[in-house]
Simulated scan of single mutants.
Amino acid sequence: MSNTKSNKKELSREQREELLKVLKARFDKNKVRHKGLEWDKVQAKLEANPKKLWSLDEMEITGGEPDVIGYDKKTGEYIFCDCSAESPKGRRSICYDGEALESRKEHKPKNSAIDMAAEMGIELLTEEQYRELQQLGAFDTKTSSWVQTPAAIRELGGALFCDRRYDHVFVYHNGADSYYGARAFRGSLRV
């Protein structure tokens, strides 16, 4: 995974091969996340979708450690999610969205979760998806992750984030313009 990419959101052949090697090793090491799924079929889907590979590389570069966590039989899509033990390091210290970023008068973070996810071609997890991920392991035991926030909460200036403490998943609220060194976001991608 190299930061030397073109603006076309495509990886070179070498970058694709390197990323596929990393993803396969993670897939093989964490079979509990995707019981019954076969890597060859996942790889074929990935190779047919270069822009999705680019997005997965962005997830990898920012520390997300993406892995397959499911398969949608209705759409025929594999579901990838950030599976790093803690919130991805390359996405921390960001507020919730662009509106929150613009509202800060001073000490602005460099980016927002919603904008960064859009640039990467991925979606923030919903609270439900976050809880499903926690069934596959203990994630965010020292950090937290922004999750998609209902419009009614966002309109009042708030945003939601989740973490895992005391072996339970908690959902909290904060001002959407807040940011912390231990908070990032987890994303998902369908391929």
Rank of each mutant, 00 (worst) to 15 (best):
D28K: 08
D177L: 07
K41H: 11
Q135V: 01
H34D: 10
W54Y: 15
E119H: 06
L101H: 07
F139T: 12
E18K: 15
I114F: 00
T4Q: 03
T141Y: 02
N30W: 12
Y96S: 02
R131H: 12
A184W: 00
D72S: 11
G187L: 01
G63I: 13
K29H: 13
L37I: 13
W54Q: 13
K24F: 09
S55E: 07
K35C: 09
L136S: 14
S84E: 04
E10P: 04
G90D: 00
S55F: 14
R104F: 00
W54R: 07
R183S: 03
L160V: 02
A118D: 08
S144L: 00
A176R: 07
G187A: 00
E123F: 14
I122V: 15
S144C: 02
V171A: 09
D97S: 06
K73C: 13
D40N: 15
E18I: 10
A176E: 02
L189I: 04
S2T: 06
D28I: 14
G64I: 07
E18G: 13
D40T: 15
L53H: 10
K142Q: 13
V68C: 02
G157A: 03
D140A: 06
M59A: 06
G175D: 11
I61P: 02
W39R: 05
R104V: 03
V68D: 03
K45T: 03
D40C: 08
M116A: 10
A152G: 10
T126Q: 01
D140P: 01
K41D: 07
N49G: 11
Q129I: 08
G158C: 05
N7Y: 14
V171D: 02
S12K: 11
Q15R: 11
P66F: 00
E17F: 01
R165S: 09
N49R: 14
L19I: 13
K9T: 08
G64R: 14
Y166Q: 09
A113C: 08
G181K: 00
A182H: 12
